[in-house]
């Protein structure tokens, strides 16, 4: 049911194009865009670019999740680490991460390394903050309960703190995924020879608006299904948790 407004919007778009209300030079019709998308999928050209983009985003996000969860947990359980890291994180916080792309290109070149590094940095903060908050708000009773049943301090992190923080970590990772895609596209607009951002930018540069929009829609759809898939996966894996709606 929630898809109806979107369909209506698309119908209006196509109708406006068909009846000539919307000149082709301004916006290609929806059918043209769809045809382009079909052609790209059939030729298989789009998949290489998709793979390149998702490898970058995946690597960056993966590094951020691994490092962020570890750091957040340690910060929550060890005051000294928290004290040392807090000002550093506070300092990185207000930096608009895509603005670091030029610097990273100087340091790591214009290849994949600089993109992955910026994505990782941009995704790190939401994961650290979510993990830290989750691990900090673990119910004392659960910790006591585990201790009373013979769990050692070291195992506590694994057996109690991590699982109890998992719902918040999962929410942080979801934010990180959205951020990763934004930074990915920005970095591919600025410099790339492959990837969906590169494709959009180069079609846009030659005025091939129908092909460009086709890729934009492809990217949006992938982003959407990635998010849905992630949520569905969480619901399966974390059956024990009562998710909101």
């Amino acid at each position: 049911m929630r898809i109806v407004p979107l369909l209506l919007l698309i119908c209006a778009w196509q109708a406006a194009a068909s009846f000539g209300v919307l000149p082709k030079t301004l916006l290609p019709s929806f059918f043209d865009v769809a045809a382009q998308l079909g052609a790209h999928v059939r030729s298989g050209e789009i998949f290489g670019h998709t793979a390149a983009s998702f490898a970058r985003a995946g690597a960056g996000c993966g590094i951020a999740v691994a490092a962020g969860v570890a750091l957040g947990l340690i910060m929550a359980r060890m005051r000294a680490v928290e004290r040392a890291m807090e000002p550093i994180l506070l300092m990185i916080y207000p930096v608009p991460k895509p603005a670091m792309i030029p610097l990273f290109m100087i340091w790591l070149g214009i290849g994949d390394f600089s993109k992955v590094a910026v994505i990782a940095l941009a995704c790190l903060l939401p994961v650290v903050v979510a993990t830290f908050n989750g691990a900090r708000s673990v119910d004392d009773m659960l910790i006591w309960s585990a201790r009373a049943r013979g769990t050692s301090e070291a195992r506590l992190l694994w057996r109690v703190v991590l699982p109890s923080a998992l719902p918040q970590i999962a929410a942080g990772v979801r934010t990180a995924i959205a951020i990763a895609i934004i930074v990915l596209v920005s970095s591919e607009f600025i410099s790339a020879e492959k990837g969906l951002g590169y494709l959009i930018f180069s079609y846009g540069g030659v005025g091939a608006d129908d092909a460009m929009l086709a890729i934009v829609i492809w990217l949006a759809a992938l982003g959407y299904f990635l998010d849905r898939g992630y949520l569905a996966g969480l619901r399966r894996v974390m059956r024990w948790h009562a998710f909101a709606h």
Binding site: M141, L142, W144, A148, R149, V160, L166, W240
Partner: peptide
Amino acid sequence: PGPDRGIVFQRYSLFPWLTVRGNIGY
């Protein structure tokens, strides 16, 4: 704390991520 003293808390303090079996066997 130690396993020689078993405690049941005022509020429910089961581990929400473990099943009944997992909790009892913890």
